[in-house]
């Protein structure tokens, strides 16, 4: 069963077709990178998966459960709300600008959703959060506020926060684009570790070397469409489209 299945996704902003009929399937444990020029709809597509953007047309399925389904005429299929929420809980997200909660400490950021959304008891939430923070290399920063740590550390906390909800699928929206170059490595190392631990991941990125290294599949988007979908070797070495070759040669 596909972890994520997108069918005929359309998303418009006014007259602009940000996503223009995309189909995509992600299998368990697969790491899929989405690359392409800015404005090609990569981030929008990712945000359509966890409903940060409402699709205009299309169907999104998480582990077999439809979370949104809107036909060509714009009719929305009624879905069981409880099942939709349960499916959406399988998604975690990491943002370009981290979006940590500034008024909460590092530890509080990680335990917030487990406590409030899952009503987990505090002791077990804290124990898990401590393990996660150790995993991302921030065991000593529990009581720091986000303003007191570096960008790379913030993004690692954000990853720990997403993992705190024990997602099956991690969506990463340009996770290193807002970082100083010297801080990119530490975040990529954490993501690499997750990829090796068999986490299913969808990563929108401009880090070509990274995409090539960790991805099982690379998707190239242009003008809201998937131009090519293939193995990293294929996309980076002999893409079918000259546009992709152009783009990659500029990026590397």
């Amino acid at each position: 069963m596909a972890m994520v299945k997108l069918a005929n996704i359309h998303k418009y902003f006014g007259d602009v077709k940000a996503v223009d009929g995309v189909d995509l399937e992600v299998t368990p444990g697969e790491v899929v990178s989405i690359i392409g020029p800015s404005g090609s709809g990569k981030s929008t597509l990712l945000r359509c998966i966890n409903q940060l953007e409402t699709v205009n047309i299309g169907r999104v399925e998480i582990e077999g459960q439809a979370v949104v389904e809107i036909d060509d005429e714009g009719h929305r299929t009624h879905l069981d709300k409880g099942k939709v929420i349960a499916a959406q809980k399988k998604l975690g997200m990491v943002f370009q600008h981290f979006n940590l909660f500034p008024h909460k400490t590092v530890l509080e950021n990680v335990i917030e959703a487990p406590l409030v959304v899952n009503k987990e008891n505090r002791r077990s939430a804290v124990a898990r959060a401590e393990k996660l923070l150790e995993r991302v290399g921030l065991a000593d920063k529990h009581n720091a506020y986000p303003s007191q740590i570096s960008g790379g550390q913030k993004q690692r906390v954000a990853i720990a926060r997403a993992l705190g909800m024990e997602p099956d699928i991690l969506l990463c929206d340009e996770p290193t684009s807002a970082l100083d170059p010297e801080l990119v490595g530490e975040v990529l190392a954490v993501l690499r570790d997750l990829a090796h631990a068999n986490m299913t991941m969808l990563v929108v990125t401009h880090e070509m070397a990274f995409a090539r290294e960790i991805s099982d599949r690379v998707i190239f988007m242009d003008q809201g469409k998937v131009l090519e979908d293939g193995s990293p070797e294929k996309i980076f070495k002999q893409p079918d489209h000259p546009r992709i070759r152009d783009f990659i040669s500029k990026m590397i």
């Binding site: 966890n50 929420i85 909660f101 917030e112 959304v117 926060r161 997403a162």
Partner: peptide, 8 residues
């Protein structure tokens, strides 16, 4: 968005 992504 962060809160929403955490299903709050």
């Amino acid at each position: 968005e962060a809160a929403r992504a955490l299903n709050m």
